[in-house]
Structures are given as C-alpha cells and as structure tokens.
Design a protein around this nucleic acid. Structure first.
Lengths: 143, 143
DNA sequence: TTAATTGCAAACACTTTGCACGCTA
DNA sequence: TAGCGTGCAAAGTGTTTGCAATTAA
C-alpha cells in the first residue's frame, strides 16, 4: 500500500511510518485543536487501527520536532494538539459548545516591547485565549 | 482557638471553617498561582493538617464563588489557583524556572471589539500568557 | 439540631512506561 | 540487520467521589 508521505516528517528527520502520517494528516486537516482520544477513535473508526499509547508517543515526537503544538485550554482537562503553522497562537473558545476558533492576527507586538522594558524578561512567545459564546450558542442563551 | 475570619467568605455566603480560611489565606498571600498539592503540603507543614481531597473541594467551592480562579499553564500538567482580584488574567511564565508573574495592564480592549465584529462571538473574558525567560534564567542561558 | 464539611479509601481520567515483537531505512 | 516504532498491559499522576464521622450556624 502506498503511503501518503509527508515531506514535513522527512524534513524534520523523522522516520516515515503509516501511523505517523495518519496522525499528522488528521491534525493538519482538523479545523480545531484535537485531543489524543479524538485522534485515536477517529483513526480506528476509519480503518486505521492504532493504539492509544502509540498516539501519545507520536504526538510527543511531533511536538518535539515542532510540527505540532500542544495546548491546554482552561475549560478542558486534557491536552489538545494542533498543526504548528508557526504563527502566533490565539484562540477563541466557546463556553457553550467548546468550539475552538484559531484567530490569525496579533495585536501584541507593541505590548511585548513594553513588557520587556518593564520586566526585563526575554519573551519567546505568547498565547492568547478569548472566552465567550459563538453565534449559535449566543442565540440559544437569548431564548 | 480564634479563627482569622474572612469577610469575603461570609459575603459570598460560604460557611466559615478553619480549613477554608487556611486555604483562602494561603492563596491570597501567594505571589503566584499555586497548585492543590502545594496548598496541601504547605498547610500540613505549618501545623494545619488537612486532607488533599478537602483541598480540592475547597478550591472548587472558592472557584464557584469566584473568590479564586483556576488556571492551567500549558507547560504544567496540573491546575493552578490564584486569588481572583477581578482583574484581567495576564501571565508571564518563565520557561527556565517556572516562575509565574501576573501582569496588570491590558492592551486588548480594542482588539476585543475588532474580534467581535469579525466573528460575531460574545466575548466574556480572555487570558494572555507570555512565555520567556526571567532576568535570572536569561543570564544563566548566556553563560 | 441539621445540613454542610471533612477524612479516608477507592475510583477515575488522562498520560506514561517496560517489554517483546515488528517494521523502516 | 540494526535500531527505531508499535501494541499491550501495567503503572503513574492529578483529580473526584461515596460514605461515615464531625462541625458550623
């Protein structure tokens, strides 16, 4: 069987296995950050039998290679993983349905400079999470 | 023995117990968010024997009453708790020593308005975490 | 007095690990 | 074929829960 091969895996010096590809592709095509459990059940559902510990080991590997980012949203009690597009990580979490939107633009460059002056930290990154209700859940609340 | 009584507990309609006061006071005087385990061992160390599940139950109660806020920093795998001063929650996390600074001012009002326009979400809050290295760890890296 | 709080032990959910086998490069 | 990747089962860690005893109001 021909694997759909990921250049990104090779480029990161990772051995190319079916499982790694399956996990990585699933993360890449997901519109929001996903959990290990989700990856596990999604792959098994779609004829790609895989063990849960293998999922965790692959996620570790992908995170170490910076292909994937692990995040933790306060309202969940498990880690989530998403494709690391090397952009800033800004999220909007719907408290109604747990939907997570990833937001693109970043208003924080100036603020970072200011903080560096104030605290003398080196700042290597940041994470911004907005909490609220998405249009659908917002409407339900009004009813 | 006379308890150091917390008006804040009473005002929130909570029964005033020694354990609740101990936990709440410890959180209030902590300079950074603390874990359940830390509270547990700190109190037991200081002649206030308490059970770990009691700590968790008290933390739940305090969070429900909005006296305390539960947060999760991506680099830790446990929840942290801090006094809820009703301010925005902005953190600076040192990746070297895990120190957590809570930052006061907030650059995000305008950004929130803009996001609301773009996404049609209702925004009820936000969390900003900056990652980097504190002055001490920064220096060690250079050596 | 009565309902809320606590300690204890056991259960839970998520994640990690040891080991033997299997597969990629 | 050498060493990394994987499945399985078992252990680890942080957190929650059932129940009986205790305590605040």
């Amino acid at each position: 069987m021909k694997l759909k091969e990921s250049n990104e895996l090779k480029q990161s010096g990772l051995k190319n296995t079916k499982h790694r590809n399956d996990v990585f592709e699933l993360i890449k095509k997901s519109e929001q950050p996903v959990s290990a459990e989700y990856i596990f059940s999604e792959l098994n559902k779609n004829n790609c039998p895989i063990n849960l510990s293998t999922v965790y080991r692959i996620l570790d590997t992908l995170c170490l290679s910076d292909l994937v980012t692990k995040i933790n949203i306060d309202t969940e009690n498990k880690n989530l993983y998403e494709y690391n597009c090397m952009a800033h990580r800004h999220y909007m979490v719907c408290l109604g349905c747990d939907k997570i939107l990833t937001v693109k633009n970043c208003p924080l460059q100036d603020y970072e400079k200011q903080l560096i002056d104030e605290t003398d930290f080196v700042i290597t990154g940041h994470k911004l999470v907005m909490y609220g209700y998405c249009p659908q859940c917002k409407q339900q609340q009004n009813n």
